[in-house]
């Protein structure tokens, strides 16, 4: 009995180790990157150019991008839309330049559907943004992900437009 319990715990530890070694959680959604921190996605390569450009040649534009910390998603999707990538990279650049700064990535969904399933969906969205930032070179220890699912809606309404505003990832800088 005792041996069995020990064996089970070894199996669990082993499987956790195996999973953490394989950090990309994806089944083909965007924002998945190779473990060495290099971006493998086409969108990532394009957007990193915008980020560099902003950093060195256009401070005002960079600030505007840095201030953009809410990224919206399509229904039942964790794919990052191209329009948000420059802002995500601007925030990534800030974290790289300030290694002691850290962020919480809050994942959210619209109110429809099952609450716990929505928590899982929200985490996928936040993880996608985290993966994109890490691909840029942000240290994993600077990012923490929390998914609120549908528990912290952006707006209380239930129109398609309201739902669109609810489906989001928000960057919150730690105080």
């Amino acid at each position: 009995m005792k041996f069995k319990a020990l064996f089970q715990s070894l199996v669990v530890v082993g499987s956790i180790a195996a999973l953490s070694a394989c950090s990309a959680p994806g089944n083909g959604s965007s924002g998945q990157n190779s473990p060495n921190g290099m971006s493998s996605g086409q969108g990532g390569a394009q957007a990193s150019g915008v980020g560099d450009d902003a950093r060195f040649s256009d401070g005002a534009r960079h600030n505007a991008l840095l201030a953009k910390r809410t990224y919206y998603f399509n229904y039942d999707s964790a794919d990052i839309q191209d329009e948000y990538k420059p802002a995500i990279f601007a925030n990534a650049d800030f974290l790289i330049a300030h290694p002691h700064a850290s962020i919480i990535l809050e994942g959210h969904t619209d109110p429809r559907g099952s609450r716990e399933y929505n928590v899982a969906l929200g985490e996928r969205r936040a993880n996608a943004v985290a993966a994109l930032m890490k691909s840029k070179g942000v240290n994993a220890s600077q990012i923490r992900v929390v998914s609120y699912g549908a528990e912290r809606l952006a707006v209380s309404g239930r129109s398609e437009h309201d739902f669109q505003l609810d489906r989001r990832v928000v960057v919150v800088f730690a105080q």
Partner: peptide
């Protein structure tokens, strides 16, 4: 904690965790 939501059984007396599902899909509820 493995990277995607999976189902575990937590023994409340021993705090021992047993992982039930182990994949990259959403497994919940």
């Amino acid at each position: 904690k493995s990277g995607s939501p999976n189902i575990y059984i937590l023994d409340l007396a021993s705090h021992h965790l047993t992982q039930l599902t182990n994949d990259y899909y959403i497994n919940t509820e």
